[in-house]
Nucleic acid binder design. Structure first.
Lengths: 202, 202, 202, 202
DNA sequence: CATGAATGAGAATTCATTCAT
DNA sequence: TATGAATGAATTCTCATTCAT
């Protein structure tokens, strides 16, 4: 009997935790990290602010978990693309295209993910995530290099430039009217740019 | 006699104003806009907090002036490069290389310049600056296109990718040990990347 | 069980809110609106300054609530007197007398109520209250005019003079020793003055 | 030679002092005591803020002097009216009428003169002035009483009511559109009110 | 005497975090 | 576990007053 309540309890706990994270994610997506305040999260999650501290040590931990989770999904997708069969060119193009297109759907989150300043603890956690993104790109680049379809100097720098181009391409339109842009076309153009930058000149 | 005191005073005023701006710049360079607080500026400049308000209407004005001044110097350099004689390829390469190399000297400032969120007033001032950077790149791109040495789809998107690559290249190493990197080599590689991305395939 | 805690809590909340309002009222009564500062209110109410903002959006709202509540009680009394049976003369006399006598008990509050300058938001709220006081007097005046027991030129100007006399009569002794005055006699004399000023000369 | 410079100097001092007072008066007339700030006064007077402290110990002293001077002029006028030949009724009517009409020309100053809260020092000084106004009215009242044309209970209370009516009549329209009012008619009506309140019923 | 730069004590408001219930 | 009331440090900006020149 007790174990049953415990199981229910645990489920409830899990739900609360999840709700808080969802709330934080939504707030970040809408207004950036600065708008992800404890009270707002709690309200949105339908719990008290005090309860938040049962599930997380402090605000940073929430932010970190939200950002990590979000970036992990993108990393999974990138890795999946990188792991597919086919020529490296196609993979790189697709990787960039998909990343940009997806990011354009919640650019503020993308911004927070990649760039919004936060204190040291958040920064450190984020760094690792970004490294993994970069590594996924590096993986494709090396493959292309081995297949002699890519040509570049330093794989790290090149990957960084690509990540920069694809990130910045998403961030910048924040200031502009996002509706005015054809996401399909835009993301393809960014991918074209990146691909050309590493393609083997025949 | 009065003119003399006035001259000394004016010099002192100029120094105070400059000291406050320098303090703000230093704080931004170290910790970003969020660390540029009035009291901290005043302390660093060796003046009282109240005095800051004799020289600037409010905090935003200080931030804006620091960022504007910093970005203006970069813009001047970019424009000067864009206006030089010579092939567009050389210009683009040099523009990216110089921008990256310079930015690597105070990457946090570069970050604040290009990306750190701030309130509306600051954001607006910054937006214009970023547009000018982009336009300088666009100018070179169009020139190269006219000379049939560059090849790309959309000049706006392409410029944005280049700015993204060169900005991100600077930002990212923030987390790493900046000393560990050969700035000359690094900036050249970023420039190579960008150039290759737009070069006319023969 | 939960409802019990909730009930206790609600009572506590009500007490806090009330304590803050009381503190504000006391501070206004002693030193006017200018002395009703958040920290002072909080100290007097025995809470932290931050807590004040859980109960009120901002300082103005507190001031407005204190003044509104105070004036509303007076207005109610005036209206009740105005609505009673009997000759207009008696009503006017009683209205003035009661208002003055009551106000003499906390003249500084009366002053803040009627005259102390405050920012626009407070002023607006107060303006309406004062209008209502004037209207209550006007109502009695018109009634007396209809009954041909009052005689005056302009009902608005006359009401204003009466409100002026009864307000000023309260304000002015502020500087004097309030104990030295027989409130009963004083308020009656003020009422006599006002009544005589509008009575129909037979 | 020295005495000559001294004379010039003294004249200059006098002018500065006067200019500061004038500036303070203007600022009070426009925005009340709260807008009479040292820097604003100095600017308007064409002197430095530091110089203000050569002529006055502190801000209060300036305010006090401005208000005293302003009220003194009104007192002089009231006294002059009170000292004229003729029936007391005419004097009282004229006193009230003139006071109100004059005050309507700079109601904000009148308000500051009579009612705007200020700290203790200002308050005390103002109290005396107001007493004198009241005494001037009292003087007329007593005269009328002696001539058996006035009839009232307590001369002090009555004078206070009259001063209240005539002050409040000026203050209140502050909130309304002052242009919309015929000053001549209005001030006459207020005077009529006051006169009727003390006139001997035949 | 004159200047105006410099000081610094407030005052309102916000928000992460704690704690009594 | 859950609540949400309570705390208080931090931050921007103002303005009377002082002081070096």
């Amino acid at each position: 009997m007790n174990y049953k309540r415990s199981a229910l309890m645990q489920e409830r706990l899990r739900q609360n935790r999840e709700a808080i994270l969802q709330a934080a994610k939504q707030l970040i997506s809408q207004g950036g990290i600065k708008d992800a305040q404890i009270q707002a999260m709690a309200d949105l999650a339908g719990v008290s602010n005090g309860l938040v501290y049962r599930y997380f040590d402090n605000k940073n931990h929430i932010i970190i978990e939200v950002l990590s989770e979000a970036i992990m999904r993108e990393i999974d997708i990138l890795k999946q693309i990188a792991g597919q069969e086919g020529p490296a060119q196609d993979k790189l193009h697709k990787a960039v295209r998909v990343f940009v297109k997806r990011a354009l759907n919640s650019p503020k989150l993308a911004y927070s993910l990649m760039l919004e300043p936060a204190d040291a603890a958040v920064e450190e956690a984020r760094f690792k995530s970004k490294q993994i993104v970069k590594e996924a790109i590096e993986h494709i680049l090396k493959e292309g290099q081995a297949q002699a379809v890519f040509e570049f100097e330093d794989v790290g720098v090149t990957a960084q430039c690509i990540v920069g181009a694809m990130t910045f391409a998403v961030i910048e339109p924040l200031s502009l009217n996002p509706q005015a842009m054809n996401k399909e076309v835009f993301s393809t153009q960014v991918a074209d740019f990146c691909l050309k930058a590493v393609n083997q000149g025949k």
